[in-house]
Structure formats: C-alpha cells, structure tokens
Amino acid sequence: MSDVNPIVRLLDALHFAADRHRDQRRKDSAASPYINHCIEVAQVLAEAGITDTEVLMAGVLHDTVEDTRTTPAEIEARFGARVRGLVDEVSDDKSLPGGTRKRLQVENAPHASPDARRIKLADKYCNVHDITGRPPAGWPRRRCLEYLDWAEAVVAGCRGLNPALEARFDAALAAGRAALDPGAD
C-alpha cells in the first residue's frame, strides 16, 4: 500500500469518505454537506505543516467509523493499520451516552498518540469555527458556549505538539467567545 503514490492514497480516502458521508449534513441552518467538515480537518492539518499522508487520510476519515456504517476493519483493509489506528483513537464509542463520550474525550486526549492529538485539535478547531460562524440550527447561545468550553478542555490534552494548530484553535475560541458573549445583547 505504501508504494502507491501518496496523492492517490489521499484522494482515495477523500472519495471513500465522500461516499460514506454522502447523505449526511452538518447541523447548521444551511445543512452543509458533511464531507466539507472532513475535508476541512485535513486541510487545517496540511496548513499547519502536517505532510504525513496517513495523518491527512485519517483526518479525512476521522468521523467515518463513528458516523457511518464503516467498520474499523474496512478502514484497515483499504488504508492500512496506521490509518485505522488513528481513526480508532479519535472515534467516539456511539454506544455510550453523549455525556460519557464527552467526558472520555477530555480524559483520553492527553493519552492519545501525537498524530491523533493533532487530528483531534484540527477537528475541534473546525467545530468551534463552525459553531461560531454557522451555529447548529436551534442551538441557543448557552449551548454554543458550553461546546466551546468543552472543546477547550479536550484541546488542553492535545497541546504541545503543533504551535500553529494551537494558535489557530485559540484564535477561533477567542473569536467564538466574543461573538457569543452574552453581554452582546
């Protein structure tokens, strides 16, 4: 698998994710195509200097097991054990209640591999940026602010690996808090 052109491998991951997420939409009022989020996570990683194709592939595929019927074995068979491992590290166990999944993300982030922590940081940046600019339909300001607080707690366990990613997250978090400031009404 490693003898295949890395660009071809990355495009294969993009195609696979687009197919698996084809009927999914983001929670924003425009119901943006979900795949845009997956692409943005990989783009943010690349813009922060990540050039490892398998990390970028895992960034594209980070929600595929969690949010579709894709199995970890399918990820491994098509993209290799390392990509599967990274996707596994950043995937929530959807059989658990939402509060438990959120708590586990905070608890597990510091113990994840450096590459999984970078993916998690890029994902949280994208989510904070989206919640601030295109909040989920029906989410009151308070819920958006609670998400920002939780994302900050997850990212606390992902720090120390990529100053560019951290700065980008911090800027989005500050902008989000300013935009959602309850005193702004």
Rank of each mutant, 00 (worst) to 15 (best):
3 D>H: 08
185 D>K: 00
131 I>R: 05
182 P>M: 00
6 P>I: 10
93 D>H: 07
155 V>Y: 12
124 K>Y: 02
36 N>G: 15
54 E>M: 04
24 Q>F: 05
70 T>K: 10
57 M>D: 02
90 V>A: 10
67 D>E: 15
67 D>R: 12
133 G>D: 15
124 K>P: 10
72 P>H: 14
171 A>F: 00
29 S>M: 07
166 E>H: 07
113 S>R: 13
163 P>V: 07
178 A>V: 06
89 E>I: 00
107 E>H: 04
68 T>Y: 14
142 R>Y: 03
145 L>V: 10
184 A>V: 08
44 V>K: 01
54 E>A: 02
119 I>W: 05
65 V>P: 10
50 I>R: 03
21 H>L: 15
23 D>E: 14
79 F>D: 12
80 G>A: 01
134 R>T: 08
31 A>D: 10
112 A>W: 11
89 E>R: 07
178 A>W: 00
92 D>H: 07
6 P>H: 07
56 L>M: 12
33 P>L: 12
147 Y>E: 11
82 R>L: 08
121 L>C: 11
94 K>F: 04
63 D>F: 02
127 N>S: 15
82 R>I: 00
49 G>N: 04
173 L>P: 09
124 K>C: 02
71 T>M: 14
63 D>P: 02
89 E>W: 08
31 A>E: 12
12 D>H: 10
61 L>Q: 03
7 I>T: 05
96 L>Q: 15
127 N>G: 11
85 G>P: 01
66 E>W: 03
168 R>N: 07
117 R>V: 05
162 N>L: 09
78 R>F: 01
73 A>L: 05
71 T>S: 15
75 I>K: 14
6 P>C: 12
171 A>K: 03
142 R>N: 06
70 T>D: 08
167 A>Q: 12
127 N>K: 11
76 E>L: 08
113 S>T: 14
165 L>G: 09
167 A>C: 04
106 V>P: 09
140 P>C: 08
101 R>K: 11
110 P>R: 02
181 D>H: 13
100 T>G: 05
169 F>R: 01
65 V>R: 05
25 R>E: 11
185 D>H: 11
7 I>N: 15
152 E>K: 11
128 V>W: 04
185 D>Q: 09
134 R>P: 01
180 L>R: 06
165 L>P: 04
42 A>N: 02
31 A>W: 00
81 A>E: 13
90 V>C: 02
133 G>V: 07
162 N>E: 05
158 C>W: 01
40 E>F: 01
75 I>P: 10
135 P>H: 03
92 D>G: 01
67 D>V: 00
24 Q>D: 10
129 H>K: 13
138 G>C: 10
91 S>A: 13
111 H>T: 11
40 E>D: 12
89 E>A: 12
105 Q>Y: 11
80 G>D: 08
44 V>H: 01
103 R>S: 05
122 A>H: 07
144 C>L: 07
120 K>V: 03
151 A>D: 12
100 T>V: 14
49 G>M: 02
181 D>Q: 09
24 Q>P: 00
37 H>S: 10
26 R>S: 06
132 T>W: 14
55 V>H: 01
100 T>W: 00
11 L>K: 03
171 A>H: 02
34 Y>W: 08
168 R>H: 08
28 D>P: 08
5 N>M: 02
55 V>C: 09
101 R>H: 08
128 V>C: 13
76 E>A: 13
178 A>H: 06
59 G>T: 03
